[in-house]
Amino acid sequence: MVRGANLALRFLLELAALAALAYGGWQAGGAWWSRLLLAVLAPTLAAVIWGRWVAPKAKHLLTDPARLVPEWVVFGAATAALFATGHPVLGAVLALLAAGNRVALWRLGTGTGGNPITR
């Protein structure tokens, strides 16, 4: 049950990161079309990074600890977007929850896709 709850939280955190990146793109200065472009491209780039190296069915799945690099890039960018748009508390909560969730999954011996990890 704890494992399932942590995996569900992980999925929600991934969605929150994508939403934060889209929001950050929309809040950027400039014309409406450039803001729209950033609001689409930022989460798309994050999804590509995630899908290529982090997602459970990624073709180029990285193993721990190398897998932490793209995870930190995505969650770090989402946190930075929240800070830059005037939401430091949300940014801090996202960062702390993502880090805590990753540690909890590691302690449970579970990868982010629910698969067992070797230590």
Score class of each variant (00 low, 15 high):
33 W>P: 00
110 T>M: 06
38 L>E: 03
9 L>A: 14
56 P>E: 03
41 L>H: 00
119 R>H: 13
64 D>W: 15
40 V>S: 03
52 R>Y: 05
63 T>L: 12
35 R>A: 14
106 W>H: 14
65 P>M: 06
84 A>G: 05
63 T>C: 01
81 A>P: 02
104 A>M: 14
74 V>S: 02
97 L>H: 04
37 L>H: 02
33 W>V: 10
57 K>T: 13
5 A>T: 09
106 W>S: 04
7 L>Y: 04
36 L>Y: 11
41 L>W: 04
25 G>W: 11
44 T>A: 15
62 L>F: 05
119 R>L: 09
80 A>S: 05
43 P>S: 13
78 A>N: 04
34 S>R: 04
20 A>G: 07
64 D>I: 14
50 W>M: 13
83 F>A: 15
92 A>R: 06
55 A>G: 04
96 L>H: 09
18 L>C: 08
113 G>Q: 04
47 A>P: 10
82 L>D: 07
10 R>K: 07
110 T>G: 06
88 P>H: 00
99 A>Y: 02
93 V>Q: 11
36 L>T: 14
12 L>R: 04
65 P>L: 10
12 L>D: 00
78 A>K: 11
72 W>C: 13
82 L>F: 06
38 L>I: 10
24 G>H: 12
80 A>H: 08
35 R>D: 04
64 D>E: 13
53 W>V: 13
101 N>R: 02
19 A>M: 10
76 G>P: 05
50 W>L: 05
3 R>S: 00
116 P>T: 12
8 A>L: 13
99 A>I: 02
117 I>D: 01
46 A>C: 09
20 A>C: 13
90 L>D: 07
105 L>H: 01
72 W>T: 11
118 T>C: 06
81 A>T: 04
93 V>P: 10
21 L>V: 12
70 P>W: 12
84 A>D: 11
96 L>Q: 00
42 A>D: 07
64 D>Q: 13
2 V>A: 15
13 L>F: 07
101 N>G: 13
77 A>T: 07
2 V>R: 15
109 G>W: 11
105 L>R: 10
93 V>S: 09
10 R>W: 08
90 L>M: 08
